[in-house]
Amino acid sequence: MPIASQISMVPVVVDDEKCIADKGCRTCIDVCPLDVLWINEDTGKAHMKYDECWYCMPCEADCPTDAVTVNIPYLLR
């Protein structure tokens, strides 16, 4: 059964300038109840890897550098 990949606009945005994942921070990744934030292999910073978000905001609230912004998922806006 062949498969295709579709693109999706994700609701959570990480500001690479502010993110200190390269210094070992994993806070947002740790707290996300849906485990959708991962390290971006290309940048070494946190990013939203899967479009499966409850817009619940622990990622934003707990980020030590205010790098995370949670937007409402496009389908709900």
């Binding site: 109840p33 849906l34 499966e52 978000c53 409850w54 817009y55 619940c56 998922p73 389908l75 709900l76």
Partner: peptide, 13 residues
């Protein structure tokens, strides 16, 4: 109603 699988009332986990 939004069709978003994770836009549920309950925490989707």
């Amino acid at each position: 109603a939004s069709g978003y699988l994770f836009g549920t009332y309950e925490n989707p986990s």
